[in-house]
Amino acid sequence: MRKIAVFGVSGRMGQMLVREIDAASGASLSAAVERAGHDWIGQDLGRMMGGAARDLVVTDDIDAALAASDVIIDFTAPAATVALARRAADAGVAHVIGTTGFDDDDLAALAEIGTRGHIVRAGNMSLGVNLLVTLARQVAAALGEEFDVEIVEAHHRHKVDAPSGTALMLGEAVAQGRGVNLSDVADRGRDGITGARREGAIGFHAIRGGDFIGEHDVIFAGPGERVTLRHVASDRALFARGAVRAAMWLEGRAPGEYSMLDVLGLGKS
């Protein structure tokens, strides 16, 4: 059995991960972890999730959770994730990262940790979104810069980062297709007298409200025609299923920082 620990277990995604691990063949939940001082610490996980007791107590003991696990799944916060990645790599425990909102320093730290650890990191764990990333790269490579690119995403009112990790994945794919660096061409929202659109820019726009699970459009607007690639998530459980799939896939892999494209056989690794 693949022993999997969930960090941030009290959140919506954490609880979905628990259910998906329970349902997965060949997987078992090895630890349920929350931050120090959280109300769930010391309580039975099953009871806290509104069900029957399951003889697993929520803990804030990271070392004990790592010692009990083959792999951890983490949808928490950037600083916590980077610190946890170091400890997981030192302990020889694989790490699936669904956290978003990393800055450049965080990403550089994770890349360094990936030289000795086993990481799958993705802004989105769904099959459909990762297929969309592949298509966005291909369309961007096929269409010239006379096609302006705008990426529009919508999420629920509680999401704390913008653009979404998925929108940035799509922007990176478009930039790769065009052979440019996203940081050089990204245009994140517009306000006031902005002047004409910058040639070659990749625009980002974030909608926040209600209970959107996640919607992403990549718009290629050319002279006389438009091409729109679109993905709509209707069930958050698909992200948890993807994360568990990644946790199972990491078994026996060489050290590295992988993506969901690798897990799904769409990448180069």
Score class of each variant (00 low, 15 high):
R2P: 05
K3N: 13
I4Y: 05
V6C: 15
S10F: 07
G11T: 05
D22G: 11
A23W: 04
L29T: 09
A31K: 12
E34H: 04
G37N: 03
W40D: 09
G42M: 07
G42D: 06
G42R: 08
L45N: 03
R54S: 11
V57R: 12
V57M: 12
T59V: 07
D63I: 05
D63V: 11
L66M: 12
A67E: 13
S69C: 14
D70R: 12
D70Y: 11
D70S: 14
V71A: 15
T76S: 15
A77S: 13
A77H: 09
V82E: 01
A83Y: 08
R86H: 15
R86K: 11
A89H: 01
V93C: 09
V93K: 02
V93P: 03
I97D: 07
G98Y: 05
G101V: 05
F102H: 11
D104R: 15
D104N: 10
D105M: 13
D106E: 06
D106S: 14
L107Y: 02
R116T: 14
I119N: 10
N130P: 06
L131W: 11
V133D: 01
A136N: 00
Q138E: 12
A141S: 06
A141D: 00
F147M: 10
R157N: 04
H158R: 10
A162G: 11
T166R: 08
A175R: 00
A175S: 02
Q176D: 05
V180M: 02
N181P: 03
S183M: 03
G189M: 05
G192Q: 10
R197A: 13
R198T: 06
G200S: 09
A201M: 04
F204K: 00
H205N: 07
G209E: 09
G209L: 08
G210R: 13
F212W: 15
G214N: 05
V218T: 01
I219A: 02
F220G: 07
F220W: 15
D235N: 12
G242P: 00
M248Y: 05
E251W: 07
E251Q: 15
R253K: 15
A254L: 14
A254N: 13
P255I: 13
Y258G: 10
S259V: 06
M260G: 02
M260N: 02
M260H: 04
L261W: 00
G267P: 06
S269L: 12
